Simulated assay, not measured.
Amino acid sequence: MKKKTYEELIKESPVTYDMYANMEDDGNRYEVSDGALELMSPAPTPTHQSVVNELQYKFNVSCRNDYIIYSSPIDVILSATEVRQPDLIMIHRSRVEIIGSKGINGAPDLVVEITSKHSRRQDKVQKRIVYAKYGVPEYWIVDLSNFTLEQYVLDRDRYDLTEVYAEDETIRSKTATCASFSMGEIVRSLPVQPDKIN
């Protein structure tokens, strides 16, 4: 079967995971949102990548005995027509069966998105609705404009914003109780401080 290009696939509806997985590699990253192929925003900034790395390090130090931790790019296949690439995910070791050969087949226990000016609306509105719909128990949004962490916990089919953490307030996950750190620790651990970046 001939691999299709992005231009060919966006004309098709709905786009499924199989179509997406077999598309021509053009060097870009995509997600499938309700059967529509979406081009992801520009490459992450150094600060974004450093925050992802620091979060992953913190989780690995305190949670790796109980959780498997992945950072993007990794496909989270929520349904045949909903495929996301969160910045960071955690899966409890009792649920390893959702880890497949091509991606994660179902909802992780915790999803983290690091938001930027390009992705703020998508992370705070669209993805919040999607992750709740597919049963992700806890969703964090890290906002790089003010280095805060918004913690959303699933209540039936919608998220409640349970806390907004900043500076040295200790972040405590409702799902991954092993996690314990602050945004201040994350910021101070960055190799280049945000105010020093041009």
Rank of each mutant, 00 (worst) to 15 (best):
residue 114 I to K: 01
residue 139 Y to L: 11
residue 149 L to W: 09
residue 150 E to K: 14
residue 145 S to K: 12
residue 141 I to L: 12
residue 144 L to N: 08
residue 181 F to G: 00
residue 166 A to L: 11
residue 103 G to C: 03
residue 188 R to P: 00
residue 185 E to M: 04
residue 149 L to M: 15
residue 111 V to K: 14
residue 134 Y to D: 04
residue 130 V to L: 14
residue 182 S to I: 06
residue 115 T to M: 08
residue 131 Y to H: 15
residue 116 S to N: 04
residue 118 H to C: 02
residue 126 Q to R: 15
residue 183 M to E: 10
residue 124 K to N: 14
residue 124 K to P: 00
residue 192 V to A: 13
residue 153 V to D: 05
residue 114 I to P: 01
residue 190 L to D: 00
residue 116 S to M: 10
residue 191 P to M: 07
residue 123 D to C: 09
residue 128 R to K: 15
residue 166 A to D: 14
residue 138 E to C: 11
residue 156 R to A: 08
residue 139 Y to A: 11
residue 171 I to C: 08
residue 122 Q to P: 00
residue 100 G to L: 01
residue 119 S to V: 04
residue 179 A to Y: 00
residue 177 T to R: 15
residue 145 S to V: 04
residue 129 I to C: 04
residue 173 S to I: 01
residue 138 E to P: 09
residue 108 P to L: 08
residue 170 T to C: 09
residue 184 G to L: 03
residue 161 L to E: 13
residue 132 A to H: 06
residue 164 V to N: 12
residue 192 V to M: 13
residue 149 L to D: 02
residue 165 Y to K: 13
residue 161 L to P: 11
residue 144 L to F: 07
residue 165 Y to P: 04
residue 182 S to F: 05
residue 172 R to P: 00
residue 112 V to P: 03
residue 178 C to I: 01
residue 153 V to T: 14
residue 112 V to A: 04
residue 174 K to T: 02
residue 187 V to L: 13
residue 111 V to A: 12
residue 119 S to W: 07
residue 137 P to H: 10
residue 122 Q to Y: 15
residue 158 R to E: 15
residue 151 Q to H: 09
residue 119 S to A: 10
residue 136 V to F: 12
residue 138 E to D: 05
residue 176 A to C: 10
residue 112 V to S: 05
residue 123 D to Y: 07
residue 170 T to G: 07
residue 104 I to S: 05
residue 150 E to G: 05
residue 165 Y to M: 09
residue 104 I to G: 05
residue 129 I to V: 09
residue 175 T to S: 03
residue 124 K to W: 02
residue 108 P to V: 09
residue 129 I to Q: 10
residue 129 I to M: 11
residue 143 D to E: 13
residue 183 M to H: 09
residue 171 I to F: 14
residue 106 G to P: 03
residue 125 V to H: 14
residue 179 A to Q: 00
residue 103 G to Y: 02
residue 180 S to L: 03
residue 125 V to S: 12
residue 152 Y to T: 07
residue 123 D to I: 03
residue 122 Q to S: 06
residue 105 N to I: 04
residue 124 K to M: 12
residue 185 E to P: 01
residue 173 S to A: 04
residue 169 E to V: 05
residue 145 S to I: 06
residue 109 D to L: 04
residue 157 D to L: 07
residue 150 E to W: 06
residue 166 A to H: 14
